[in-house]
Design a protein around this nucleic acid. Structure first.
Lengths: 245, 245
DNA sequence: CGCCTATTTGATAGCCGTCAACCGGAGTGG
DNA sequence: CCACTCCGGTTGACGGCTATCAAATAGGCG
């Protein structure tokens, strides 16, 4: 029932990290929005443009990217159902990155004015939004460590660990199994590698028995071992009830 | 006069991006804090620890870092005087990165409770804090592009451009000149390079006439050319009056 | 003066990028 | 139904950028 509301899973992730009473929860669920579908690679926001309404992913996957002037792409984040896509920019007048659909998606578009008003009027909800921003920033920092200081094998393994951990936390998959919604080229654009090398690296992980592949579906027979070689610890994802004292 | 208040430059950067009236400005200046000095490499916050009071840099430089389990370090951000160091974590119960002094610094330590109370009671100030978080996140995303998709030469040039642009915006240096407060090893830890290669790269920039070095003091005879090869555009820093509509 | 750290330079190795070709499945149109 | 096309995935050969190892220089400080 509650799970059928398009914003239910966003609310769920807010409540997991910040205490919200019933009235506040209902205010979030009462936010105005319009549901819209997007095809793969459709833009939900453009780098340099004035931000539009804030999209919340109802189903499907999306990513944020930046382009270098030589055309090379860096995917800076990937988003799973239930996540807000553009909270990063509710108060900025220009986008600093683009947001694109990775798969077919359905998104609830919330007018920025309403979100801004909510943040002004409701301190607890404002806190929840700040926590959301802080967790996203934490994931970005871990992404920098991944890009700057890890080998290709570690990067790919780490991405798999992070993605499956987030999917598991959102109750969207098992911990030892997930379906990566990206092409190998997109994985490369996320990890600072070429698609060719991503391919070789996935194969190496498979030869080592750390993953089993079937198309883009991955099974991890030994999650502990995979996390060890990836140097993955999930603290930076700030799962669970993390309200500070 | 106002510039002598330890929080004056933080307030200044808030006001540059978010409209705050005089009452609100005075509330910020009335925040309780204790001034403290730190020696280079002293910790202001530790990865995994419960966050303490929030430090605001009054003088000197600081950085945030994460460690991989093999001991290699990734510096994820560098901070200049006037910046808040740990707003990222005011609402989180565990730090996800460490904060260390880069040089001798003086910091105003603000109790987290007071900051949290401020954010709850003052919507405009809460907005200013959110904008601060969003700008920091934007810098992290550009950092990911730098790490993932740029050559060593571009990375070093880009870092110089970013640092000098931020120092210039804070009115702490000229646009074509700055003093990098980091060792070459720390620059490497920021850019995903070794100190040896940073050294060679700095030399290459100097041979190309893009920088002139005197110890750690840099002069950029041709800022435009340096920015071009760095692929640096300052929009991601969200300078100026950026309050969204 | 002597120690320690930061910088500089050289030689070598290796990870990953580049280029190129081929494969395989899905969709399309004849 | 089958040929064609296209995109994503796979594999091999080769090269280059950057790491690694090593050593020498320079500067700061007791």
């Amino acid at each position: 029932m509650a799970n059928q509301h398009p914003l239910a899973s966003l609310l769920r992730s807010f409540c997991a990290r910040t205490a919200l009473d019933e009235r506040e929860q209902n205010i979030i669920l009462a936010l105005p929005f319009t549901l819209r579908s997007f095809a793969p690679l459709d833009y939900l926001a453009r780098d340099g443009a004035v931000p539009g309404p804030c999209p919340v992913l109802v189903s499907g996957f999306a990513f944020c990217q930046k382009l270098a002037s030589d055309g090379s792409r860096q995917i800076v984040s990937i988003h799973i159902p239930g996540e807000a896509l553009d909270l990063q920019q509710i108060f900025l007048s220009r986008g600093d990155h683009s947001v694109q659909a990775l798969t077919e998606i359905s998104a609830a578009l919330i007018p920025r004015k309403d979100l801004q008003g909510l943040v002004r009027a409701e301190p607890n909800i404002a806190t929840a939004v700040s926590v959301h921003l802080e967790v996203e920033a934490s994931i970005l920092r871990e992404g920098m460590l991944r890009l700057g200081r890890r080998s290709a094998l570690q990067r790919v393994a780490h991405l798999i660990c992070e993605f499956s951990a987030r999917m598991y936390d959102a109750e969207l998959s098992e911990l030892d199994q997930c379906e990566l919604p990206m092409t190998q080229e997109q994985i490369g654009d996320m990890l600072g590698l070429t698609s060719v090398h991503v391919n070789r690296t996935l194969k190496a992980l498979e030869v080592d028995g750390l993953i089993v592949r079937n198309k883009r579906n991955l099974r991890m027979p030994n999650v502990q071992a995979l996390r060890r070689i990836a140097d993955f610890r999930d603290e930076y994802l700030h799962f669970g009830h993390q309200q500070g004292s």
